[in-house]
Amino acid sequence: MTELDARERIMAAAVRCAAKKGVQRFSLEDVATEAAVSRTTIYRQFPGGRPQLVQESATWEVARFWMRLADSVADAATLEDRLVGGLKMGSDMMRRSPIMSNLNATEIEELAIALRPSEALVHEVIRSYLRDLLAEEQIAGKVRPDLDVSEAADYLARMLLSVLGAPVGRDLSDEAATRELVRTQFLGGIAVR
């Protein structure tokens, strides 16, 4: 088992333990059992112990969330379809997540603090993903020719994160309503009609 394998295996185990027992209630012993490694191995990979394991596993899981989301819309025909699909799938994944649906106030605080350092990086990854898409669409003549692609990617990333995090009573699994939102508030000033 390579170092990277061991790391990923331990983080995946930590995520499973958090899903089963709750973010606050799993122990390093639980993770060691789940990952079939020794506690020494965990400490070698995560010298900071539980806090470091929680922080890195949370960051890793968030990165995987966005990768899965990107995968799920990879075949979408248009930017609009991709955004609609991403919002639907993203809200669905969040709703079904056993970790997300069982968080208490203390756990939310712990995770929010753990995830904050990587937040800027997550934003940049989403922005650059959208920037590449917008650049392609611009060449294809589907977005305004005078659009500042970097600025538009920043705007779309903010809207995507905002709507996923706080849908304000919108049911994002309602395809027609979500498409209307994407057409107006996301792409209204971006797409060529």
């Binding site: 605080e109 929010a112 753990a114």
Partner: peptide
């Protein structure tokens, strides 16, 4: 301590603010 603000806004807080 931005995590504290994030926690305040997380899971429903931001939604309530927007509403």
């Amino acid at each position: 301590d931005a995590g504290a603000v994030e926690a305040q806004l997380a899971l429903g807080g931001l939604d309530l603010l927007f509403v």
